Simulated assay, not measured.
Amino acid sequence: MTEILIEARRLVKHFEPRGLFLKKKSEAAVRAVDGVDLAIAAKETVGLVGESGCGKSTVGRLFLRLLEPTSGQILHKGRDLVSLTPKELEERRRDLQIVFQDPFGSLNPRMSVGAIIGEPFAIHRLAKGAERERRVARLLDLVGLPRAAADRYPHQFSGGQRQRIGIARALALEPQFLVCDEAVSALDVSVQAQVINLLQDLQRELGLTYLFISHNLSVVRHISDRVAVMYLGRIVELADADILFKAPAHPYTRALLSAIPPGHPRAKRDREKLKGDVPSPLAIPQGCRFAPRCRFAVERCRSEDPALSIIADGRSVACHLVADGSLSVPPRLSPHSGAAA
């Protein structure tokens, strides 16, 4: 049986409004994450995708307790991170790290690269002096940067090199779990490929586990073992990457994948256009939250909230019509009809 490294159970994060002119303290809470269940096995990469504002980055930060959940559990090796004391959480943070989206904004421009990468050793009182320098040099080797980079500053590097510095810093404490929050979206396409290959090499060498958050579906397909699709604060489909990209089940997943440019210049694909805009997380629709934009929606969809349930091929889908068989999973797409890895 595969060991579960980290798991979210009924994870909820609501942001209460703040301001001098609010009528009620409790009115119009933003339901950013609204009941997420997601288990990630050791050495697995789970991709997390969805439109902007769906709650992807909030989930990543909740997994690391960079944000405090409104309710729910985050289990790391069976221990609930929400119940930990500050001292216990500090010790756990060695195993849980993040690679941020902006490779420049996430690095202190006044610190040398050596000081940036070596800072975790100082915070956790693990190494100092020559030993810290030796560990920094090893981390620079690991991410493909020259050791001389330790004496330079972030502005002296390209975007791809700065992201390698961010990865080196995240690996300093030898973590098991990394949240990669749009880690390649700010990079040129050719540099994206280099960073993705680096992440995969590091995973094989160090036995890392990734939650890979991205809006780039082609990149997600290439790197992920499984993919979770989020819509308005909830996961609506979870499946093996190959299954999900070749035969998406949920209507929202189908619409997302139909927007990917075809992988072959002569290939044609029917675009499934969504009607309307994403509802506001301040006012979640009754029933299925995707129903106002779904062309398959029936009356039950507008009144009853579907649970994330396992269907015949082993994937999990939150859709009444898919669960009862009235909306069939489409035939697998041909190799040239869509998202190429």
Score class of each variant (00 low, 15 high):
Gly60Asn: 07
Phe63Glu: 09
Phe63Arg: 02
Phe63Ser: 06
Phe63Ile: 00
Leu64Met: 01
Leu64Ser: 09
Leu64Cys: 15
Leu64Lys: 08
Arg65Lys: 13
Arg65Asp: 12
Arg65Gln: 10
Arg65Tyr: 05
Leu66His: 13
Leu66Phe: 09
Glu68Arg: 06
Thr70His: 02
Ser71Cys: 04
Ser71Met: 00
Gly72Asp: 01
Gln73Glu: 10
Leu75Arg: 00
Lys77Gly: 14
Lys77Val: 02
Lys77Ser: 05
Arg79Met: 04
Arg79Ser: 09
Asp80Lys: 01
Asp80Asn: 06
Leu81Glu: 13
Leu81Asn: 04
Val82Pro: 15
Val82Thr: 14
Val82Arg: 08
Ser83Arg: 11
Thr85Val: 00
Thr85Ser: 15
Pro86Asp: 12
Lys87Glu: 12
Lys87Cys: 04
Lys87Gln: 03
Glu88Arg: 07
Arg92Ile: 09
Arg93Ser: 08
Arg94Asn: 13
Asp95Arg: 04
Asp95Tyr: 14
Asp95Cys: 02
Gln97Ser: 00
Gln97His: 11
Gln97Met: 04
Gln97Ala: 07
Ile98Leu: 14
Ile98Glu: 06
Ile98Phe: 03
Ile98Ala: 04
Val99Ser: 05
Val99Asp: 01
Val99Ile: 14
Gln101Trp: 06
Gln101Asp: 02
Gln101Asn: 00
Gln101Glu: 09
Asp102Ser: 15
Pro103Asp: 06
Pro103Gln: 10
Phe104Gly: 01
Phe104Lys: 06
Gly105Cys: 07
Ser106Ala: 05
Ser106Ile: 15
Leu107Gln: 07
Asn108Met: 09
Asn108His: 13
Pro109Ala: 02
Pro109Arg: 08
Arg110Pro: 01
Arg110Met: 12
Met111Val: 01
Met111Phe: 02
Met111Glu: 00
Met111Thr: 12
Ser112Cys: 07
Ser112Glu: 10
Val113Gln: 04
Gly114Glu: 04
Gly114Lys: 01
Gly114Thr: 10
Gly114Trp: 06
Gly114Ala: 15
Ile116Thr: 08
Ile117Ala: 15
Gly118Cys: 06
Gly118Leu: 12
Glu119Ala: 05
Pro120Glu: 08
Pro120Asp: 14
Pro120Ala: 08
Phe121Cys: 06
Phe121Arg: 06
Phe121Trp: 03
Ala122Pro: 05
Ala122Ser: 07
Ala122Gly: 00
His124Ala: 07
His124Asp: 09
Arg125His: 07
Leu126Asn: 10
Ala127Met: 03
Ala127Asp: 07
Lys128Arg: 13
Lys128Pro: 10
Lys128Trp: 15
Gly129Lys: 10
Gly129Tyr: 11
Ala130His: 04
Ala130Lys: 13
Glu131Phe: 13
Arg132Met: 10
Arg132Gly: 10
Arg132Asp: 15
Arg132Gln: 11
Glu133Lys: 13
Glu133Pro: 03
Glu133Tyr: 02
Arg134Leu: 11
Arg135Asn: 04
Arg135Ala: 04
Arg135His: 05
Arg135Glu: 07
Val136Phe: 14
Ala137Met: 01
Ala137Tyr: 13
Arg138Asn: 11
Arg138Trp: 10
Arg138Ile: 03
Leu139Cys: 09
Leu140Met: 09
Leu145Ile: 12
Pro146Lys: 08
Arg147His: 01
Arg147Lys: 03
Ala149Phe: 05
Ala149Asn: 03
Ala150Pro: 11
Ala150Phe: 06
Asp151Ile: 07
Asp151His: 12
Asp151Leu: 07
Asp151Phe: 02
Arg152Gln: 07
Arg152Cys: 08
Arg152Met: 04
Arg152Tyr: 11
Tyr153Glu: 00
Pro154Glu: 06
His155Arg: 12
